[in-house]
Amino acid sequence: MKIFVALALFACLGSLAQAVDNEYCQNTVITACSSSAFSGNSICNARFAGIDHIEPEIQSYINANLAKSYDYLLLATHFNSYQKNRPGFQKLYQGLSDRSFEDSIALIKQVTRRGGIVDFNTRHESSGSVNTKRGTLEVDELHSLALALDTEKQLATGATHVHSRATHATDADRDPELAHYFEENFLGKQAESVRKLSGYANDLAKLMKVPDPSLSVYLFDEYLQKQ
């Protein structure tokens, strides 16, 4: 009887050890060596920590940056026309468009580096999604600055949301590496952009408090060209 109990206990321990081994890439690779091709088991990838939890949030933020890049490009085109002829404003919005596009590319690389896949065929939404609803972009100089300021605040809020989800999630979903990435590459940069555009909007609003503000707008555009 004692021998039977011992054998049963040994069998249970063996099954438990095998179940634990199945959670590691090493065991998967050893199994795959007996077949003609590696099966690509999901354990053998670059995913770890909370990437499964954070990936939809980052996808949503990538989509937002691409949409805002397009909106900024429309603003740049609007002020580059012969009717408006505002090269300073064109330079400002072209720069913001390029930055948002480059941020999207950098985020795509970051997701794939962590074993994720960016799927543009699926719309990802989250509680921190950036509003991408478009209004008219054929606006005057002051209203364009207000629109850009709202956009930068939305992008800053989106980056803060991703950072918060990566930092304050449960132990299994927490991802310090992604939190650090957003802190280093987005939070400070977005805060500086909000500060700069808020200063521009307030300065131009004060300059336009005259009966004919056309000269003020012209001089302000000259100032933007030098930035």
Rank of each mutant, 00 (worst) to 15 (best):
K133V: 12
R134T: 10
G135V: 05
G135Q: 09
G135F: 04
G135H: 06
T136V: 14
T136I: 13
T136H: 10
L137I: 11
L137G: 10
L137P: 01
L137V: 12
L137Y: 12
E138C: 11
E138Y: 10
E138S: 14
V139A: 02
V139D: 00
D140P: 01
D140C: 01
D140L: 00
D140W: 00
D140Q: 01
E141D: 12
E141C: 05
E141R: 04
E141V: 07
L142G: 03
L142W: 05
L142V: 11
L142E: 03
H143Q: 14
S144L: 04
S144H: 04
S144N: 05
S144P: 02
S144I: 02
L145S: 01
L145K: 01
L145T: 01
L145D: 00
A146R: 10
A146G: 11
A146Q: 13
A146Y: 07
L147K: 08
L147E: 02
L147Q: 05
A148D: 01
A148E: 00
A148W: 00
A148G: 05
A148C: 05
A148Y: 01
A148F: 01
L149M: 08
L149K: 09
L149R: 09
D150M: 14
D150C: 11
D150A: 15
T151N: 13
T151W: 08
T151D: 09
E152L: 06
E152V: 06
E152D: 09
K153I: 07
K153S: 06
K153D: 02
K153Y: 04
L155P: 03
L155V: 05
A156V: 08
A156N: 14
A156F: 12
A156P: 05
A156T: 11
T157R: 11
T157E: 13
T157L: 13
T157F: 10
T157Q: 14
T157W: 07
G158L: 02
G158A: 04
A159Y: 03
A159I: 02
A159T: 03
A159Q: 03
T160M: 10
H161W: 10
H161F: 13
H161K: 04
H161L: 02
H161P: 03
H161R: 03
H161S: 06
V162G: 00
V162K: 00
V162P: 00
V162Q: 00
H163I: 05
H163N: 08
H163R: 09
H163L: 09
S164V: 09
S164L: 08
R165L: 11
R165H: 11
R165E: 09
R165F: 09
R165K: 14
A166M: 08
A166I: 12
A166W: 07
A166V: 12
T167A: 10
T167C: 07
H168F: 15
H168R: 14
H168G: 12
H168E: 12
H168M: 14
H168C: 11
H168L: 15
A169C: 09
T170I: 13
T170A: 14
T170M: 13
D171G: 08
D171C: 11
D171E: 15
A172N: 14
A172M: 15
A172Q: 15
